[in-house]
Nucleic acid binder design. Structure first.
Lengths: 343, 343
DNA sequence: GTGAAAGCGCTAACAA
DNA sequence: TTGTTAGCGCTTTCAC
């Protein structure tokens, strides 16, 4: 496939009557090499069309300066914030990022982990798929001393810290806010209860109800994929309920938005008939009318902290196992979709 | 950093009293190796915790089975569709994807190209950054016979085909639709006119106006970043105009949505006072009220076709230079935001 | 169906 | 400040 033979440091060395080592050092900006020699080397390298061979380098040095990231999907505002945060920190520390999507499939995630493993990532940051089960797929990495860190959707593992928000408190705050508005019959649209983020929010929902002396009704918790279709499907279910709920707490803004629209299209008034609150503070929550109340989620910060934590471990500055989890601040954001004031 | 010594095919070979060659073949499922030997090899590999060394393999074989993708950002619904399409095709053909973001910066893009180059991608697919200038940064790849293909935001290069939609026609259709609704004073909110996608849409806008006998007013073309802030800024500019425009065509749905909301918050009625049409058919266009008219953009298909094209070149099935560009179908989608019928 | 030998391009360790 | 030597782990080539 290649039209010309590759130029190596040996070719440059021969041309300049130097050793390959010197050329290697010169290209790496090693302080042991004189300015003059460096310039000669880089000039000839450019002239000869030399390109650095990452594979040979990695093979020899056994370091890749690459960090793997596995996420469910990149097409959410939250995730791209996280990635932006990680990228910035990694870049400044001279690490590359390999990003891959599990597309919410545990199988695909396992394949991605294996690929990362074979590509010898120095460390791995993961937000697990919807249906991921157990932590065994990470053992091969940990056994080789490759640190694994979870963020957002975490798993419990003694070796792997998690960067999270207080999901239970957030679920409590959201539910409590609806209760404060006078809602008495509140639906929680959530995700797989195996995922910490969703089960914690459910706990928060339950504790707020309990505190208000409202009995928990399991039929009022909808476990879904939290995508657009789920929002529409839930709306249809809600329309069949009697009595109608007077409040809905959805663990995802996009899902909430679709649910809301479907209900409004069917003549339901929001917030008068049903109050709504979402989660994540996605841009859509500001655009939709009524504007969607939600819980803020510090994506950029989460990405930065995760990357910083991992890199400081890789550089030997701070062992990653010294922390179990880091909890970031999240906040209730009240907008029109929940302001019904029925009291 | 690694706790144990790495297991190599030699270790497996020694243990099984075979040669490294045989082990390599066994792991690769080479037909020359007997079923029984294969099983012994894979079993011992697992037992010993062997992991395939991609670097050594790539170094030796001079192939990476990796395709690079450089895009402005991943956080749009359109781009994640494209990536999903590429990923599927690449996966099936046994290629890996390395994805990186230019974040709309030509400098970062150039760095990414270089990284891809050093990582010896077999081919590269690019949608260029907002301010990319010229094509020289791709020459190093082309000189080494690494094929480069553009999609969406393309550059003109005799060696690099582009996968696009008919942006001019789409711009024409959008503008024409507003004219058909009786708009006579139409703003076009677009991006850098160096980018084909935006200049072509501007051409379409201009030709529709010309056809309707409306004189072009350069003040009615806003060149912006097309992001959320741009939408808000444009709304503020529009509010200062006298007379107010009666139609707005925005080259991006998200930008359009933010512009629309800002105008509505200021008391403008849509579509009665100002009709709106966006571009891309993002999910937000369906959620916003009034629902946003737009131009559909076949992201998944674009990704699949781009990947298929590149891979068939890499496999020697069809030379990539035989095509200059592939134009996909896009369509006008009429929703409430443009239905003002002033005629 | 299996093996021996060579070398991909780089850098670590040691030497000068 | 620069050089020598060796070897990272794999696959290719040729041989049987």
């Amino acid at each position: 496939m290649y039209s010309e033979k590759e130029v190596t440091i040996y070719d440059i060395a021969k041309r300049l009557d130097l050793s390959a080592t010197t050329v290697s050092r010169g290209l790496k900006d090693n302080p042991a090499i004189s300015k003059k020699t460096k310039k000669r080397i880089t000039d000839v390298a450019v002239e000869m069309g030399y390109r650095f061979n990452t594979f040979a380098s990695n093979l020899r040095s056994k370091r890749t300066n690459t960090i793997g990231v596995i996420i469910p999907r990149m097409n959410s505002s939250f995730m791209s914030d996280v990635l932006a945060g990680m990228e910035k920190v990694a870049n400044e520390a001279n690490y590359n990022l390999i990003i891959s999507q599990s597309l919410e499939s545990a199988d695909k995630e396992a394949v991605n982990i294996k690929t990362m493993f074979n590509n010898r990532v120095d460390g791995l940051m993961v937000s697990v798929a919807y249906n991921t089960n157990g932590v065994s797929q990470f053992e091969m990495l940990l056994q080789k001393g490759v640190p694994v860190l979870f963020f957002d959707r975490t798993l419990d593992h003694p070796m792997c810290p998690g960067i999270i928000i207080d999901n239970q408190k957030s679920g409590y705050l959201a539910t409590r806010h609806l209760l404060d508005q006078g809602c008495k019959n509140i639906i929680h649209i959530t995700g797989n209860q195996e995922r910490n983020v969703y089960s914690e929010r459910q706990k928060g929902y339950e504790s707020a109800l309990a505190e208000a002396g409202i009995e928990l009704n399991k039929d009022q918790t909808f476990v879904t994929m939290l995508d657009e279709q789920a929002g529409i499907d839930c709306a249809e279910q809600i329309l069949k309920m009697s009595p109608l709920p007077d409040g809905v707490f959805v663990d995802n803004d996009n899902c909430a938005a679709n649910c809301m629209m479907k209900l409004m299209d069917s003549g339901i008034k929001i917030p008068e008939d049903i109050a709504f609150i979402g989660f994540n503070n996605d841009p859509i929550s500001k655009i939709i009318r009524p504007a969607l109340s939600t819980i803020s989620y510090p994506g950029v910060e989460m990405g930065q902290i995760a990357a910083r934590k991992l890199i400081s471990h890789l550089n030997g500055q701070q062992n990653i196992n010294s922390t179990n989890s880091i909890v970031l601040r999240s906040e209730l954001i009240v907008r029109d979709s929940s302001l019904c004031n029925r009291l």
